[in-house]
Design a binder for these strands. Structure first.
Lengths: 181, 181
DNA sequence: CTGCCCATGTAAATGGTTACATGATTGA
DNA sequence: TCAATCATGTAACCATTTACATGGGCAG
């Protein structure tokens, strides 16, 4: 399970609460993994049971109490081992592409509407990736190497979106050309 | 659920058995969806219960009996409606990218090994996408438009792999450069 | 005689989403 | 006063993977 290891990776950088992690998965981790808060809290419990992290309760007066999770040596070892293990390619599950594959049943205008909607969503994601939040995150890196690796995951996200936008454009163009023949 | 609709899409083209569908999801549907046989058989049951398809048992003497599923009018309607509904962006879950993000803990040679392994897997996938199987599939299209749409899903798969290969190369190159500073 | 293709399914476990549930503080 | 942010969790459900299970035909 990679959610577990992504969490261990974040905890290696600094101790965090479930709530903090939720924010990471809603911003920086967006390039490579997504998770909801219910999943994160369950996984943190599991990680603690396995002795990979310990939790410390911080009592706060003006806001709810926090549970801060600290990575243990065993957790760090588990992370290191996983990092060295080659992974299978991610399985493709692309709803919009399923639609395009069977869009033979639709009118051209409907296909264009689908592609436009999809394009708009990709454009928004790209905007988010290029926002200053992402760049400021890079300044928290512990070394040049870490900074570089983070930079590359960011580029990966951007590159993927750009490639997607190009595909949308070329698909729309080709569809138009089909009818002019 | 998109597996359901991908199956309906295939059944719209021709009646198929669970086994046939399994092969589709192992070849052409690879660009946009993946599924195992246990998932397919269960989904076919469900589709039949909902009245979206009917099954006909074909008794064969030299090989096991088949159950061929035929799309009903209701099934076709369900498919058409879903095809018109804009979908959310696929959630990113990329194990190798998680590893790269936290690879600060690894030696450069280990990072390179990860990237090489990943690159080799992407290269094999690309080879598969470019194989003649995929091209021959295009000839079964019912119209120019269908052929074009299939062509585009194929290009999407290829474009994604190529973009991935470029990213791997640039990541390796940058890592090397970091140490020469 | 070994292994692959045909062809179907079930069961258990894991992973992931959505809905339910609470409640104080702060800024517009 | 409305919405957002802080902060946690549980429960039910749905989707997916992996393992278990069977058995004939055919080619090398």
């Amino acid at each position: 399970m990679s959610l577990k290891h992504a969490i261990l990776g974040f905890l290696d950088i600094e101790p965090l609460s479930g709530y903090d992690l939720k924010k990471k998965f809603g911003s920086t981790a967006q390039f490579y993994w997504s998770a909801t808060h219910s999943q994160i809290y369950r996984t943190l419990e599991q990680i603690t049971e396995e002795g990979l992290a310990t939790k410390k309760i911080i009592i706060q007066e003006d806001s709810p109490n926090k549970k801060i999770y600290h990575l243990t040596d065993k957790g760090k070892e588990e992370l290191r081992e996983w990092l060295l293990t080659p992974q299978d390619l991610p399985l493709v599950r692309h709803k919009t592409l399923v639609q395009i594959a069977f869009a033979y049943l639709l009118e051209d205008e409907d296909i264009n509407a689908l592609l436009d909607d999809y394009g708009e969503k990709v454009r928004k994601k790209l905007e988010h990736y290029r926002g200053r939040n992402q760049k400021s995150m890079l300044d928290k890196a512990r070394s040049k190497k870490e900074r570089y690796l983070w930079q590359q995951t960011l580029s990966h996200g951007i590159k993927t979106c750009v490639s997607e936008m190009e595909w949308i454009q070329s698909t729309k163009k080709g569809l138009k050309a089909l009818n002019k023949e």
